[in-house]
Design a protein around this nucleic acid. Structure first.
Lengths: 164, 164
DNA sequence: TATTGTTATACTCTATAACTATA
DNA sequence: TATAGTTATAGAGTATAACAATA
């Protein structure tokens, strides 16, 4: 990514020098962007986005739930969730039904077609992550996952405190 | 971030369950987004963006250079670099002069005001990164930096091969 | 013709505010 | 009034294509 270099190989890109400059925070931000791009390209073949894949996976693992809960699990605003659900519903991957007990709620559930699409997409997801983490050994990959989870928990604690 | 939770603490967000679902790739992408947000908020106080800070830092470390080289080091398209440079030049942090030897080139150099702003922003950057990595020990922070650099180098190798 | 920089436009992901319908 | 969902709009960051000036 840093070397988005369409020029002939061997051009003096100086990526080695760059290593000493880029801060860990910005490096994380840029690698995150690249991760999103790679995932998006991978899922584009089956006409999904990374968020769509996450959404289908959550419904698969945890069963039907209201949009508020779903958005909460994904860390996404309700308005964003709507725009994610709409095409999934049109494609028949997902269904929205009103909750009889509380008619304000829309309970989202995964359809059979959604299950099948999820299986297809899972392969693309694995390949994308293999490409993304190709610079790491399996052990390093595991370490990275641990560190990222710890990072996220640290941030979650902060936002809890902030809202207190 | 996953728990962008303005609700009272103790609400059943289910973030613990989420940990098992989110893929490493998407987790990286989302943490990267959060990293960019935190950095942006930190630099906003001095009216810079994370990319502006990176740009000033590169000029400080490596001295004046043409826009092509600068964009190459940052991993940014030439057109993006232009939009980054314009406000920096207006603010007097940076100067563009035509290269006498090749009048197509604009050589970018860091002004004294830019140096001063860089020093101010460096403090904000450190504080932002402390907040961002607060879930990690110092040792974990170092590990993470190593892993991210290895990841980036792996991706750089890929794009080199792709362009061959 | 190729290269440097520039402009204009569009895309992705996300956030905010105002609206509806139910409670 | 408060909550679930929706719509419309805007923001940040980046990419693509066409262009002018220079080589």
């Amino acid at each position: 990514m840093a070397a988005r270099d369409t020029r002939k190989p061997g051009a003096k890109t100086g990526s080695v020098l760059e290593e000493r400059r880029t801060s860990p925070g910005l490096l994380l931000a840029l690698l995150g962007q690249e991760a999103m791009r790679v995932l998006r390209d991978a899922h584009a073949a089956v006409e999904l986005s990374p968020r769509h894949f996450q959404l289908l996976g959550l419904l698969h693992d945890q069963g039907p739930m209201g949009q508020r809960d779903l958005g909460g699990l994904m860390g996404v605003e309700p308005s964003v969730l709507v725009t994610l659900l709409n095409p999934l519903e049109v494609s028949g991957f997902v269904s929205r039904r009103r909750d009889a007990a509380d008619r304000r709620r829309h309970v989202v559930s995964l359809n059979a077609a959604g299950e099948r699409r999820l299986v297809q997409a899972a392969r693309a997801q694995r390949e994308a992550e293999d490409k993304l983490f190709s610079g790491l050994t399996d052990e390093q990959r595991r370490q990275l996952a641990v560190l990222l989870l710890a990072m996220r928990d640290g941030l979650a604690v902060q936002s809890e405190c902030a809202s207190t």
